[in-house]
Nucleic acid binder design. Sequence first.
DNA 1: TTGTAAATTGAACAGTGATCAATTAAAAAA
DNA 2: TTTTTTAATTGATCACTGTTCAATTTACAA
Lengths: 201, 201
Amino acid sequence: MGRRSDHSRAELEALILAEGQRLMAEGGFARFSAREVAKRIGYAVGTLYNVFGSYDLLLATINTVTFEDWAKHLEARLARASDDRIAALVEGYFSFAADHPNLWSAIYDHRLPTDMAMPDALAARRGVLTDIVVREVATVLPDAGKDRAPRLARSLVATVHGHCAFALNGSFALMGETAPLDMATARVKEALAAAGATLPA
Amino acid sequence: MGRRSDHSRAELEALILAEGQRLMAEGGFARFSAREVAKRIGYAVGTLYNVFGSYDLLLATINTVTFEDWAKHLEARLARASDDRIAALVEGYFSFAADHPNLWSAIYDHRLPTDMAMPDALAARRGVLTDIVVREVATVLPDAGKDRAPRLARSLVATVHGHCAFALNGSFALMGETAPLDMATARVKEALAAAGATLPA
DNA sequence: TTGTAAATTGAACAGTGATCAATTAAAAAA
DNA sequence: TTTTTTAATTGATCACTGTTCAATTTACAA
């Protein structure tokens, strides 16, 4: 059984998050449980509640880590992109979800209780993903319209999210759609073109 | 306690679905339970399993009823629409979700086990919603491109879904977006315009 | 009236999130 | 070094979940 001498608080927190994310990746939101995480790291359930305060905060923190992993994935994808960075961005959005479907779904499966707001610290960490999109959108917009980048970027993220969600939850398959990524990319480019963006041929 | 003399099988099925949908609307997916539905209609848990076979099938059926309610809502919204039926469609999509957030969310919160496909009968009933969108999209497309209506409609549904999901789950609020409906409508109209659609001024 | 087939029950099982008195270990004080 | 204090850790306990299925009850046919 775990003891204080084994792990500092920071180490314990990292241990719980790492094992929690692993369990989430394996079995998804529906099969996730605090008890199973505790068992795997050799601590009792109560310890997780000591460290994270509640089940919801544990989940929100695991999902925030996933957000950060996702943002790293996007940056890596952009780093090896051709001249079409917008296409790379959409592809990176999809491929992270495809590579880690359970982690990606957990972000949207978990809803905080109505009386509980997302802690500012976690919200800020999640913001990095949108920031990347805003930056890339601003790059292709004409100087005259760069101030519209934040709102347009949010809307494009929602657009891609919708396509990605339907691709992963089977809605697209049920409708007979076989190329969700192409569809999402087309919608994004149309919207950028309508905003006067300069896109590669 | 419920007896056979009280309700025929069809009546019992309808009773379970009605009370199940009511419970879902009240407490959402997280607070839903078969036991609570059984208690409210005065039958034992086992009866729900007799009628629906499993928890997942009960949920899938309740959500299918919600799909049908949603489609009716869309048709009613279209019936009182101005010349801009596309805007009415997007508004109807959003307003159903806003009016019944727990019912709407339950559709996407519930995922069938990976080894269980959506029964054909339920999938067909859910299709009515997409059919409406395909019909309206085909109406505004030029004759030369009407064959593209199904794929474009699916993509537009995904686009609006993304915006609606972000509006309801708080993602847009966290990003500072205050007019998700306007954003969704703008994206849809851009995509239709790019496809050569005739839209009201 | 009796027999049969079907519907209905609810206790039982293994699991969940959550709590908190009791224990144990580390750090501080004597 | 001992003693005291503080904090971390435990795991039994509670009320709940989906699921099963032998036992019961009901409806209907013979």
